[in-house]
Design a protein around this nucleic acid. Structure first.
Length: 277
DNA sequence: CACATTTGACCGTA
DNA sequence: TACGGTCAAATGTG
């Protein structure tokens, strides 16, 4: 109907555009930062600089992913958020605009990352299914936000171990829908101490310790993050460094004389704050 | 007992 | 019609 919707749509496009610009900016900054880090005399394996390089790689991957997602997503208002599924409703959704979560294959509005620590991304997840996937060696596990009930948070993710038997094993984590449950006060949970690793031994040097390799499927490590996990942050931001918890990144941040990245770091962080708004 | 996970069935999409 | 995503009863765990 009318202009209201049109206005909303326009303003959302504006927001998306802003988001895209900001992510682009962050991506570029991350690229520069990475170059600075890696150019400063090739760091020894396992050093903080190397770790930072890895983090930045992930950051860049995630920002690229977020970008493509934003650019391809034009239907958020159409989908809305917080869709509680109902079978009654599902029968009448043949139209183009069906509610989210209705057994639609999620080729859109999803983004993924590859990580060896798929269960420790700062959100609480509850497993609701597992399936053997046709072409995959390992089953895929399905998780949804633990706040789905009380807050109607629509966020879901799937975790699937890559076919390769590499060690540490890599997991493809595909996220779908943004968290709408971020009310736990946190912006970025630098200080959130309650977040326990989702699998044994993953707290210290989590980035180097994979879940027990496996035959054990992803599901076997599905002790979900505790509900009191680190602040529910918008995934666009949080995902960027999902492979390392924020507090760990900060804890491992060496002094400025080692990294000389103060300004860049703050700028990068500043860029990502927009998604909190 | 409450809550989380497992698992088979159901159903929409491609 | 095969495949993938979700539901919900059954089961496990503390």
């Amino acid at each position: 109907m009318g202009k209201g919707a049109e206005l909303d749509s326009n303003s959302e496009q504006c927001d998306n555009r802003l988001a895209i610009d900001k992510i682009n900016q962050a991506h570029e900054l991350a690229r520069q930062l990475r170059a600075v880090l890696l150019s400063s005399s090739s760091p020894p394996a396992g050093s903080s600089a190397e770790l930072a390089g890895e983090i930045l790689d992930n950051l860049m991957k995630c920002s690229a992913s977020a970008l493509s997602r934003l650019q391809s997503c034009c239907c958020r208002t159409c989908h809305g958020v917080g869709g509680q599924r109902s079978r009654e409703f599902s029968s009448e959704k043949r139209g183009r605009c069906m509610p989210i979560g209705h057994k639609r294959r999620k080729t859109q509005n999803t983004w993924s990352t590859v990580t060896s620590v798929p269960y420790d991304d700062g959100h609480g997840w509850r497993k609701y299914g597992q399936k053997d996937i046709n072409s995959a060696k390992y089953p895929r596990s399905y998780y949804r936000c633990i706040h789905r009930k009380e807050r109607g948070c629509p966020a879901t993710k799937t975790v699937q171990q890559e076919d390769s038997d590499a060690y540490p094993p890599k997991f493809i984590v595909a996220y779908s829908m943004q968290h709408t449950c971020r009310s736990m006060g946190a912006s970025i949970a630098f200080s959130a101490p309650q977040q326990e690793a989702s699998f044994e031994g993953s707290r210290s040097s989590r980035h180097l310790l994979p879940p027990p390799p496996s035959t054990a499927t992803a599901a076997n490590h599905s002790q979900t993050s505790s509900p009191s996990s680190v602040g529910d942050q918008d995934d666009t931001t949080r995902l960027s460094i999902s492979e390392l918890s924020w507090q760990e990144i900060m804890n491992t941040s060496p002094p400025a004389d080692t990294w000389s990245m103060d300004s860049n770091w703050e700028t990068v962080m500043g860029c990502f704050e927009f998604s909190e708004a």
